[in-house]
C-alpha cells in the first residue's frame, strides 16, 4: 500500500482576472521508504503539490482544490486545519531551497530544534531536547555539535545549516520527507555532499522522500522513481533508470537535453512551447 497516494488532484486560484488553473488532475504514488522525484520547470506545479500534501495551501481562501490525497491510507480531503497541522513536523517534514533563510535569524539553533522536537514530545525538557538534537546533529557528521546548537543561523555556513535542516527534518522520525529543491541555493559541491547525506539518512530512518526538483542530474542520483510534470500535468513516469534509458515523451526528452554538458556544446535549443509537450501521459512498466 502506498504511503502517499494522489488521485485526480486539481488546483486553481481565483483571482481578479478570473480563475487560473495550476494542476489538471495529477496522480502520484509514494510507497513507504521510497524516493520519488517530481521534476519539471518553474511554474509547472511541483511546489504547490507539496504544499497541498502539507495542507498549507488549503488555508488560502483563493485556492480551490479537488481530488483525493491519501496519507497512510487516510483520506485528507475532509481534514480540518488541526488535523493537517498534527501531521506537520511529526509524520511529514520538509526541507527547503535555502537552508540559511529557512532558519529564523533571531533565535539560536537549539531553540528552533527544541520547538521541532516538542512537536513529537510536547513535554520534552531542555535537557531532553539538547540530547535528542545533539544525537540528530551527530548523525549528520557535524563535528562541533555544542557550538552549532548555540549558534545563530548566520554564524554557520550554508552547508552547516543544510545539515541542521536535515537533522531537524528527520529528528521526529517522519514517514515522509518533502524536499523542495533542496540546496539549490548552495554551491554544487556542498549540494552534492548534503544530498548524499540526505539519501543515506533517509535510508537509515526508512523515510520516504518526495523530492521536488528541476535538475534531472540530481534526480538521477537520488530518486527511485520519477514523475515528470509539465504545466500541471504528469507527462511521463516510471523507474529512474527506465526513464533515463528511454525517455519517450517529447517534453522529457527536451528536459534531458537541457542538462548542461561539460563537453561544451552550449545550451541546446528548446522551444518555449510545443504541441508535442501536451501529448498524453506515458507510464513505464516496472517499479511499484
Amino acid at each position: 500500500m502506498s504511503l502517499l497516494s494522489i488521485r485526480d488532484l486539481s488546483l486553481s486560484f481565483r483571482g481578479i482576472h478570473g480563475v487560473t488553473e495550476v494542476l489538471h488532475g495529477i496522480a502520484l504514488d509514494i510507497a513507504p521508504g521510497e524516493k520519488v522525484a517530481l521534476v519539471g520547470e518553474s511554474g509547472s506545479g511541483k511546489s504547490v503539490t507539496a504544499r497541498i500534501v502539507l495542507g498549507l495551501l488549503q488555508e488560502l481562501a483563493a485556492a480551490r482544490i479537488d481530488g483525493e490525497v491519501r496519507f497512510g491510507g487516510e483520506d485528507m480531503r475532509g481534514f480540518s486545519r488541526q488535523q493537517f497541522a498534527a501531521n506537520r513536523g511529526t509524520e511529514i517534514s520538509m526541507i527547503f531551497q535555502d537552508p540559511t533563510s529557512s532558519l529564523n535569524p533571531t533565535f539560536i539553533i537549539e531553540r528552533q530544534f527544541a520547538e521541532v522536537i516538542r512537536r513529537r514530545n510536547p513535554g520534552a525538557s531542555r535537557e531532553d531536547c539538547l540530547r535528542i538534537a545533539g544525537e540528530a546533529l551527530a548523525e549528520t557528521a557535524i563535528p562541533d555539535v555544542e557550538r552549532v546548537l548555540a549558534s545563530y543561523p548566520f554564524q554557520l555556513s550554508g552547508g552547516m545549516n543544510q545539515r541542521v535542516m536535515i537533522a531537524m527534518a528527520l529528528v521526529n522520525k517522519p514517514k515522509l520527507l518533502i524536499a523542495d529543491e533542496p540546496g539549490t541555493a548552495l554551491d554544487v559541491t556542498v549540494q552534492a555532499q548534503t544530498l548524499q547525506l540526505m539519501r543515506q539518512l533517509t535510508d537509515e530512518h526508512q523515510a520516504a522522500v518526495f523530492f521536488i526538483s528541476h535538475n534531472l542530474g540530481v534526480v538521477r542520483e537520488f530518486a527511485d522513481r520519477v514523475y515528470v510534470i509539465y504545466r500541471g500535468r504528469i507527462v511521463e513516469d516510471g523507474p529512474t533508470e527506465a526513464i533515463f534509458a528511454d525517455p519517450r515523451h517529447a517534453y522529457t526528452r527536451a528536459l534531458m537535453a537541457a542538462v548542461p554538458r561539460i563537453t561544451g556544446m552550449g545550451l541546446p535549443d528548446i522551444p518555449e512551447r510545443s504541441d508535442s509537450f501536451d501529448a498524453p501521459q506515458i507510464s513505464h512498466e516496472g517499479g511499484s
Binding site: 506537520r88 529557512s102 518533502i178
Partner: peptide
C-alpha cells in the same frame, strides 16, 4: 513572507506561537 515562517508552518508550529514569537521578534527590531 520569509522562508523561516513557511518553515515554521511546515513543521506545524502553533499559529499563535508563530505570531507571538517567531514572526514577532524579527519584526520588532
Amino acid at each position: 513572507e520569509k522562508p523561516y515562517i513557511e518553515m515554521a508552518q511546515a513543521y506545524g508550529f502553533f499559529p499563535h506561537r508563530i505570531a507571538r514569537i517567531y514572526a514577532f521578534k524579527p519584526s520588532l527590531i
